[in-house]
């Protein structure tokens, strides 16, 4: 973003990467895939790099409003400094915080989740999916993340993208408004689960297995990490592959 600013230019969108996308090896691949799509489609975008900070989502949900406010206000300073208008986040937690919680703090932006942008690009014909791709006719199941689905009522955009990939979507027993959490939200990602019979990601993975799908599509880096762990715990990581929607598109088009 700083480079654009130095040249006095403004990118079409700001791509908000988030902490998982920046630092987690699995999530980084999602970010690379999404960036590839933006490049292929020819959308001029920027990232903030080290000027980006955690949106504060886990701190706020853990109850630590001070840490949330510090991080959020810092980000808003940066975003407002660059006069950012349009943000696309590849993480539903970042998406939700930027879209719904920053306005009360003085940060007003047009925020999209990357699956919404992907659907829009497909609808506009800017993003063309090659026929006969690797996923055609394959059984795929889709995991609704809480913060995109229930939290913001986005259920159809990701499904429309899957439909465009021409595969067989098999819904899990609990989907859409009833979708089961992966277990990472509410800052659970950063602590051990409380005592119980089994882990939440294992509960969810069992449902994935029940669908008979070989591919699990996700829209959230945290879900991707949790479900990956769940697949390993259930020894299903050889049979079922988990991909973000952006990765599915990149694989399909062999970019």
């Amino acid at each position: 973003m700083a480079e654009f600013a130095a040249e006095g230019r403004r990118p079409e969108i700001l791509f908000w990467v988030g902490c998982a996308g920046s630092y987690d090896a699995r999530a980084q691949k999602i970010m690379v895939a999404f960036a590839k799509i933006l490049n292929e489609v020819g959308i001029e975008f920027a990232i903030l790099g080290n000027e980006e900070g955690c949106t504060g989502d886990p701190a706020r949900r853990a109850g630590n409003e001070f840490v949330f406010q510090m991080s959020a206000l810092q980000n808003i300073e940066v975003l407002n400094g660059y006069e950012v208008q349009k943000i696309v986040a590849a993480c539903p937690h970042c998406f939700n915080t930027l879209k719904n919680e920053y306005p009360a703090l003085g940060g007003n932006y047009d925020v999209m989740h990357h699956t919404q942008l992907l659907q829009q690009l497909i609808n506009e014909g800017r993003l063309k999916l090659q026929g006969g791709g690797a996923f055609e006719g394959k059984k795929i199941t889709y995991h609704d993340s809480c913060y995109l689905g229930r939290g913001n009522d986005v259920y159809e955009a990701p499904r429309a993208v899957l439909e465009a990939l021409d595969n067989e979507l098999v819904e899990m027993k609990r989907s859409r408004t009833k979708g089961l959490c992966c277990g990472a939200g509410g800052a659970q990602m950063f602590k051990e689960e409380e005592d119980g019979s089994h882990r939440i990601n294992v509960e969810r993975v069992r449902e994935v297995v029940d669908t008979g799908a070989t591919i699990l599509a996700a829209n959230c880096p945290f879900c991707t990490i949790m479900m990956n762990d769940g697949l390993k715990a259930e020894e299903k990581e050889e049979e079922i592959m988990i991909y973000d929607l952006a990765e599915l598109i990149v694989n399909n088009n062999q970019w």
Binding site: Y23, Q28, M31, G49, N50
Partner: peptide
């Protein structure tokens, strides 16, 4: 107490994880 490193990391490193790398290393 598991949450303390997360708080510290956000407060001091602006990231939920304490990782010294640049945020755009992946890119």
């Amino acid at each position: 107490s598991d949450w303390l490193p997360m708080y510290n990391s956000i407060e001091n490193g602006a990231s939920a994880w304490q990782i010294p790398d640049d945020r755009d290393k992946w890119a």
